[in-house]
Design a protein around this nucleic acid. Structure first.
Lengths: 340, 340
DNA sequence: CTGAAAGCGCTTACAG
DNA sequence: CTGAAAGCGCTTACAG
C-alpha cells in the first residue's frame, strides 16, 4: 500500500517524476491541470514521499535534537522539562520540524550519543540544555562538528557559542528590589549551585540590587544550595543566625523548604521574614503558600529556542546569536504585600 | 571537515567503498590488514557515514517515535511521563535507536502529525501512549500504514493491536485484598475516568477482590474521578456518607486528596479509614503521608516497551504481541499495617 | 510548463 | 577477501 514511489504516482497521473516532485514541494511552473491530476492521485493512493531520500538529496532532515546532558539530573522530577518540551514541540509542529530527544543518563551514555548527534544527514541542528560547567566538553565537541547548535541556558564559557537564556541577573535584581521596596533591610539569599550559570547569575542579581541600595550583606548572607526543598530548609537553618528579615531563594522548591524551616523556628512569613522564590512552575505548594516569585516563561522559552535554532540552520554562514528573555515578578503574599 | 564521504575514506585507505562499508558495519570478509587501515583513517578523519543515505538503502532508520496523543493532557504535570521517557531513552541508548518525540497538544496538531509519522524512511516503528477512547482514530490510522506500532496502555478496543500495559486488574485486586486482610469490610473506590482502560481495569480489580471475599458494595461505593488531588478530595466527600472503613484510590494524587478530606472531616487515617493509592511515583507528599500504594515499574515499562517494539520491527510478518507487567504492593502506614 | 538525466551517499548482490 | 556496478527514492539544474 505505502510501497509507492514518486515514479508510480507519475505514471498514474500521466506526468514525469519531476512534475510530481514539483507539486509535492509546492513549486511553481506546474500547470493547474497537471497539479490537480497529481494531487488527485496522491490523495487516492495516500502517497507520501520517502523521508530518507528527500533528506539525502536536499541535505535537510527537518529534524532537530534536544540534548539533555548528564548534568541534568533533575529531568525526572523537575516540572521545568516537560514545560520546556511543550514549547519546543509546539514550535516544531508549527515549523514542520520533528524533535529527536536525547537524554544522557550518565557520562557513558553521553559519549555514545555524540556520533549519533553529529552524523550527517540526521539532524539539522541541536538544542543543548546546559548552564553547568560539566557540559563544557560536549559543547566543545558539538561545536567542532559544524552542526548548528543553540545552547539553552547560558554556558559557563560563552565566547563562541549561540545561546538562549532568561535574563537571570535582571530577574533576581527585580526580586530583591521588591523585598527592598517592601521595607526589608537584612536580605539574605539561598543560591543554586555555583557551578552553574543559573546559580551564579541569580547571585549577581542579588548583589546588584543590594549594592545599588547600599544595603549590607556578607558571606553569612549567602548560602549555596541545590534547588531542592530539603536544601532550602538546610540553607535557611544556616541563614537564621544572621537574623534576616527577608530571604530570596533562587528556586521555588528552595523557597518552600526555607518557609518550612522558618515556621519550624516559630517565626512567621511574611511578618518576621519575607520570602521570594523563583520559577512559578505549577507546584501545588507554591499556590498554597501564596509565594511571591519570579515567573519564568518556560513554554515560550522552548518555543523561542526552536525559532532561534531554525535561524541558525537557515543562515549559511555561521552567526552568533544570543537571546535573553524577560521574566515577570508575581506578587503574592509571602512578602506581606499584595498585588494591587 | 565532516563533508567526507565513504569514497574519500576508501581512497585514503587504498581500498574500495565496499570494503569501507563492510568495516563500518562490522561485516566479515575483510582482511585484518584492510580493517586496521580503514579504522585508522576513520579515526583520523572523524568520519561518520551519512544517516540518510544509510536509511535510504537499508530501509532502516533506527529511529522510533513516541507519540503522546492529545488525550494525554497531563504530560506537563504528571511525573509519569518523564519516568516513562527515562526508560525509553535508556533502551534506545542500549539498542542504538534514536527517539523522536511527538506531543500532540491538540486534535489539530495530531492531524498534522500523521503524515510525518507514517512517511516512509523516517521511523522504524512507533510507541503510542494510549488507553483513552479518544485515541481510537489515531490507532486505526497508524495501523493502516503498516508501520510497526506498539500501544502503551491497553487500548479500549484491542483486537488487532499490539500493546503493553501493567496488569491493572491484578494490581487493583492486590491493593483491595490488602485492605481486606487488614480487616476492613466497607471498602470504597475512587476510580479514574471510565473512558479509559486504566480507569476501567482498576475498577475491575476492585470488583474481583470484593466479590471473591463476598464483601458488599454498590453504586455509592464507586465514585469516578480524574486522577487529580482535588478530584480525590471531592470524590471522598461523596463517599463519606456510606461510612466506609477503607478507600482504594486509583492514583496517589487522588489518595492524597482523599486523605485531605478525611482529615478535614475530623477522621483519622488509618484508624477510621484506611487508604491505598496507586503509582508510587516520587511525589513528596506520598512519602510524608506514608501512603500504602501499588508501585508501577514505570521506567522498566518504558524500557520493555522499546524492546517489544524492536521485536515487532524485526519480525517480517506482523505478529500480535501483548505484554502485561507486574506491580508491587508497597506497604506503609496508611492502612495501619506496617511492612514486616 | 515539462521531462530526461545526473546525483545525493550509502549497501549489497555479483563476479572474480 | 575484494571491487565494480546497480540501486535505494528522491530533487534539481538543464534543455526544450
Amino acid at each position: 500500500m505505502s510501497e509507492l514511489r514518486l515514479e508510480d504516482i507519475a505514471k498514474r497521473a500521466g506526468v514525469s517524476r519531476s512534475t510530481v516532485s514539483r507539486v509535492i514541494n509546492n513549486q511553481p511552473n506546474v500547470s493547474e491541470k497537471a497539479r490537480q491530476r497529481v494531487l488527485e492521485v496522491i490523495k487516492l493512493t495516500g502517497f507520501s514521499p520517502n523521508a530518507a531520500a528527500r533528506t539525502l538529496v536536499s541535505q535537510r532532515s527537518n529534524t532537530i535534537g534536544l540534548v539533555l546532558p548528564h548534568s541534568v539530573s533533575t529531568f525526572f522530577t523537575d516540572p521545568y522539562y516537560p514545560h520546556l518540551i511543550k514549547g519546543i514541540t509546539q514550535a516544531c509542529n508549527q515549523y514542520d520540524f520533528t524533535l529527536a530527544l536525547f537524554v544522557a543518563g550518565s557520562k557513558e551514555y553521553q559519549e555514545k550519543l555524540l556520533p549519533r548527534l553529529s552524523s550527517k544527514g540526521f539532524l539539522d541542528g541541536v538544542i543543548l540544555q546546559s548552564g553547568h560547567q560539566a557540559d563544557q566538553s560536549i559543547i566543545l565537541e558539538l561545536s567542532k562538528t559544524n552542526l548548528p547548535m543553540l545552547v539553552a541556558g547560558r554556558p559557563l564559557y560563552d565566547d563562541e557559542v549561540c545561546f538562549i537564556d532568561i535574563d537571570n541577573i535582571a530577574a533576581s535584581e527585580k526580586a530583591v528590589r521588591h523585598l527592598i521596596n517592601c521595607g526589608r533591610k537584612k536580605i539574605v539569599i539561598i543560591t543554586g549551585p555555583l557551578t552553574s550559570t543559573v546559580g551564579l547569575d541569580r547571585l549577581s542579581g542579588y548583589r546588584n540590587a543590594m549594592d545599588s541600595s547600599s544595603l549590607k550583606y556578607n558571606d553569612n548572607s549567602i548560602i549555596e544550595s541545590d534547588f531542592t526543598e530539603q536544601g532550602g530548609y538546610n540553607a535557611m537553618q544556616k541563614l537564621i543566625s544572621s537574623k534576616p528579615d527577608a530571604v530570596f531563594a533562587a528556586s521555588d522548591m528552595m523557597a518552600i523548604g526555607a518557609i518550612r524551616f522558618i515556621r519550624d523556628a516559630g517565626l512567621n512569613v511574611p511578618k518576621d521574614i519575607a520570602v521570594v522564590g523563583f520559577d512559578d512552575l505549577p507546584i501545588p505548594m507554591v499556590n498554597e503558600l501564596q509565594l511571591t516569585t519570579i515567573r519564568q516563561p518556560v513554554v515560550q522559552f522552548g518555543f523561542k529556542a526552536v525559532e532561534t535554532l531554525i535561524e541558525l540552520i537557515e543562515n549559511d554562514l555561521p552567526i552568533i546569536k544570543r537571546v535573553l528573555m524577560d521574566t515577570e515578578l508575581i506578587i503574592r503574599k509571602s512578602c506581606g504585600f499584595e498585588s494591587g
